[in-house]
Design a binder for these strands. Structure first.
Length: 264
DNA sequence: ATGACTACTCCCAGTAGA
């Protein structure tokens, strides 16, 4: 069994103790982190490596930044999403882990927020989603075990938000945003949490403001999308909601899948 | 309700997040 998780930590330096405790508790094999909010040199890799993880980071000063952690050795790792050489924002890292049969390819992503929608931020989000779809299409053609995991900044469905009306005009829930997310699924990717439950309220984010956590005013925006070869092996999926109750929590919580696969 | 909270930054009021 291989456990793959994604977590927007909202600053790795603020969240290191939480990460170390959660790694011990949840014992994931591969972890996709977003919003590390530091340059590569400032990433606290040593305590994570001491727990047996290989660490690769693509950071930038102040904002964004992603990292891949793995207890299984990488064949390859590659930062940046193809399709726009001008894009300097650190939002993507791909890793490939050898399996007994074939490989496991993981794309760790931090999709742009896109708010406010009447600024250049929204077209940047939509373009980024198109680049992601082109990338996924290319990878799916290889018929590999392939997982896209990260903070998608997309609320897929009214079931995934505490008050759909309040979010109608938000970049995370606009029809064009949801259509582009659906386009990814239409390629043949499976939303892992949705493959295990139809229930509403499977939230992964609660805003710091206005008592979001206390009122359970959450949204589901962190996702793991599985290729057919991966979804065939889906054993379980879950959301580690309890971390939101920890002191000085990230506003996002980890989401994970267990895939019935054997590492090489 | 021009807010609320958290984290970042040439240090501290402005920006970003979602």
């Amino acid at each position: 069994m291989i456990r793959i998780a994604t977590w927007n930590v909202n600053s790795i330096r603020q969240r290191l103790e939480h990460l170390l405790k959660w790694l011990k508790d949840a014992s994931p094999d591969v972890v996709c982190l977003q919003e590390i909010k530091c340059v590569d040199e400032a990433f606290p890799r040593e305590p994570i490596e001491a727990m047996g993880y290989t660490v690769v980071t693509h950071g930038q000063k102040t904002f964004n930044g992603v990292a891949l952690l793995s207890r299984l050795p990488f064949d390859e790792t590659k930062p940046r999403l193809a399709g726009d050489d001008e894009d300097v924002q650190a939002r993507f890292f791909e890793g490939v882990v050898p399996l007994k049969r074939g490989v496991l390819r993981i794309g760790c992503l931090y999709l742009p927020n896109g708010n406010p929608p009447d600024t250049e931020k929204y077209p940047y989000k939509l373009k980024w989603m198109s680049r992601l779809t082109a990338y996924a299409k290319e990878r799916l053609a290889n018929e590999e075990t392939f997982v896209l995991a990260g903070d998608f900044n997309v609320i897929p469905d009214a079931r995934d938000v505490y008050d759909a009306r309040a979010w109608m005009g938000d970049a995370l829930f606009l029809p064009q945003t949801r259509e582009r997310f659906q386009a990814l699924l239409n390629l043949g990717m499976t939303d892992a949490v949705r493959a295990t439950t139809d229930a509403a309220g499977q939230y992964t984010f609660w805003d710091y403001q206005a008592g979001g956590w206390a009122k359970n005013n959450g949204i589901r925006i962190d996702h793991l999308l599985l290729s057919p070869q991966a979804s065939d092996r889906l054993a379980n999926a879950g959301i580690d909601k309890h971390l939101r109750g920890w002191e000085k929590a990230s506003d996002h919580v980890p989401v994970w899948v267990d895939l019935d696969l054997e590492a090489a």
